[in-house]
Nucleic acid binder design. Sequence first.
DNA 1: AATATAGTGCGAGAATTGTCGAACGATCAA
DNA 2: TTGATCGTTCGACAATTCTCGCACTATATT
Lengths: 115, 115
Amino acid sequence: MAAIRTYHHPDVEEIALPRVLFALSEPLRLTMVRILSERGEVDSLELGPDLPRSTLTHHTSLLRESGVVFVRAEGRKCLIRLRTEDLDARFPGLLRTVLAGYEDEGTTGAAGGAA
Amino acid sequence: MAAIRTYHHPDVEEIALPRVLFALSEPLRLTMVRILSERGEVDSLELGPDLPRSTLTHHTSLLRESGVVFVRAEGRKCLIRLRTEDLDARFPGLLRTVLAGYEDEGTTGAAGGAA
DNA sequence: AATATAGTGCGAGAATTGTCGAACGATCAA
DNA sequence: TTGATCGTTCGACAATTCTCGCACTATATT
């Protein structure tokens, strides 16, 4: 029984707006968030199949530490989902507004070619 | 009659969400935006009285080039206002949502001590 | 014209962020 | 146990961003 992978997540009150906006200001991460909103909880590889693993971990960690996503280990894999309720409790409507404004741009083949 | 100071502003369609979010992800700029939303069109000095001028120009330019604010020269001064309608046409509700989520934090003495 | 004030642009340096290879531990299948 | 796959961490490098002094132009006042 080896050490289980654990992840730190900020409490709802600790989620800071500048950090969230910064996390969402990167096209790649914004695309990840859009995928998450469409598919719910997904395997981390779905967020960037063609990306180097270390790059994927980097962006995933940033989204997690800013309070945008929740990450949990499942066997070898890494399941990720949006903290929709927490974000909505903290910044009502923000996520919906951002996603609505990003639907038309970058709709095709982003996040390293996720299809 | 010398050359009038002119400023480039992106068209409404050119305003990109990642750029806007990045512009709003900086606490200083976020505070500037809040001041603008409270006071309407203001002298640029009101956005950061204690800041070095070059720093102020830097942030003002970034906000302008991302499509968040409109800048016009008035004599020696520089008047700045939010592009509320344009932003709302492009990303409905974004500005209101962001401002609502930032009212409680950083309410005091930010933007270099603007009072 | 002389002075004071406001804004801009440039440049340098510090700080932050993004990308990615390599090594490592953990997990699953055979 | 062996081999393959996945995620993490570290380190290095590139790119971007931030801050700010300085010189310069433009404007307003006297």
